[in-house]
Amino acid sequence: MSTIAPSTPRTTLPVPVRWNRPLLVLAAAMAVLSVACLVLAVADPREVLGQNAWFKPLKFSLSIGIYAVSFAWLVGLPGLRRPRLAGVAAWVTVVGLVAEIVVITWAAAAGTTSHFNVATRLNTALWGVMAASIAAVWVMTLLVGLLVFRSPLPDRARTLALRAGVVLGLIGMALAFLMTSPTQDQLDDHRGVVGAHAVGVADGGPGLPFLGWSTEGGDLRIPHFVGLHALQVIPLGLLLLEVLSRRATALRDERTRFRLVLVASLGYAALTGLLTVQALLGQPLLRPSPAVLTAAAVLALAVSVPAAATLRRAR
C-alpha cells in the first residue's frame, strides 16, 4: 500500500482581516521617534544612571513599535471573537503606550529618571501615570488573549504558537511589577526612589552596552524582556519551521510541528523562569552560579532531547 506524503504548509502566518490602524500609526510614530532618539544620543552626551539619557526612550520606542505591530496583527486575526471589543482594547493600548513613551521622553529631555522617581510631586504624578498605563496595557493584552483562546486556528501548531506567545508575553509583562517594590536600602533611607531594576546592587552601575543590564548584580529587566517578546519569538519560530518544511519533509506533518512548538514553548517558559530566579538571586546574566549554570544545561537537554526524538520519529 502506498502512502501519501504530507503537503508542504503555507509559509505565512494568518493574515489579519484588517490591520488595526491606530496601532500601525503608533508603530510608525515609534519608528520616527527611534531615529530622533538615535540622533539626539549622538548630539547630546548627558547621562542618566550611567547611560546616555536618550538610550532609554530609544529602547522603549523600538520595543513599543514592535509590540504595536504584533498587537495590530493579533486583534485583526480572522475569526477572532468580539472584534469590536478587540478594537476598543487596541485604542486603550495605544493611549497607554503613548502616555508611557511621552513620560520617558520628557524625563530624558529633563535629564532625570522616569521609572520609580518620586522625588517631587510632579515626578510622583508622572510615575503614577506610567504605572497606570502599563497596568492598562497588560489588562488589554489579557483581554485580547482570552479572545484568541476562544478563536482557534485550523492548524493546531499555529494555534499553540499563538496561544503560547500570548500567555508567555503576559507573564513577561507581569514580571515588571517585581521591579516596583522598594529595596531594603530605600526603606532604610528614602531618597525619592521607590523600586529598582537591579537586585543586590544599585541601579546605574556597570552594565551591558546599550541594554544597560547590570554586570555586577541581578537585573529583572532580563526576564521581563525575554518573556515580553515571546509574542514575536514563538510564532516566528513556527514560521521558520514552515519555511524549512520546503526542504525537510519531516516538518510537513502538522503533528511534528505541533510537538516541536510545544517543546519550544515549555522550554521558553522554563528559560524565563530561570532568568527570573537568577535575577532575584542577584547574579549577573554572564556570571551565573554553578547551580544556575547546571539548571541551564539541564534545560538545554530537556529541550533538545524531545525535539530530536520528535524529528527522528517523523523521519
Results as ranks from 00 to 15, higher is better:
164 A>G: 02
294 T>N: 12
19 W>R: 11
174 A>M: 11
243 V>C: 10
104 I>D: 02
172 G>E: 03
251 L>C: 08
242 E>K: 06
104 I>G: 04
118 V>P: 09
108 A>I: 02
259 R>G: 09
117 N>A: 05
20 N>V: 01
32 V>Y: 14
162 L>Q: 13
56 K>I: 04
192 G>Q: 07
249 T>P: 10
28 A>F: 11
60 F>S: 06
288 P>C: 09
187 L>S: 12
89 A>T: 01
303 V>K: 08
107 A>G: 08
179 M>A: 13
191 R>M: 08
119 A>R: 12
73 W>Y: 04
262 L>T: 13
155 D>E: 15
161 A>F: 00
297 A>Y: 06
165 G>S: 05
11 T>H: 15
244 L>H: 05
207 G>D: 00
278 Q>N: 05
96 G>C: 12
233 V>E: 05
177 F>C: 12
151 S>W: 00
156 R>K: 14
204 G>S: 09
131 A>S: 13
149 F>E: 13
143 L>E: 00
286 L>G: 12
100 E>A: 06
214 S>Y: 04
144 V>Q: 10
8 T>D: 15
186 Q>Y: 11
274 L>A: 00
129 V>M: 09
245 S>C: 07
205 G>K: 06
271 L>W: 08
283 Q>F: 01
254 E>Q: 03
113 T>A: 14
158 R>I: 13
128 G>V: 07
258 F>I: 03
270 A>D: 03
279 A>D: 01
187 L>R: 15
211 L>A: 10
301 L>I: 08
306 P>G: 08
83 P>M: 05
192 G>W: 12
138 W>L: 15
147 L>S: 00
182 P>V: 06
117 N>L: 07
93 T>P: 04
117 N>R: 06
95 V>P: 00
222 I>N: 10
196 A>T: 04
238 L>Y: 00
182 P>G: 02
140 M>Y: 07
256 T>D: 09
191 R>C: 09
108 A>C: 09
57 P>V: 06
59 K>T: 03
208 L>Q: 03
298 V>C: 14
286 L>E: 13
88 V>L: 08
274 L>P: 03
298 V>Q: 07
240 L>D: 04
176 A>F: 13
57 P>T: 07
294 T>P: 13
279 A>R: 00
169 G>K: 01
129 V>S: 02
122 L>T: 14
46 R>G: 12
286 L>H: 12
5 A>F: 09
171 I>S: 06
315 R>S: 14
186 Q>N: 11
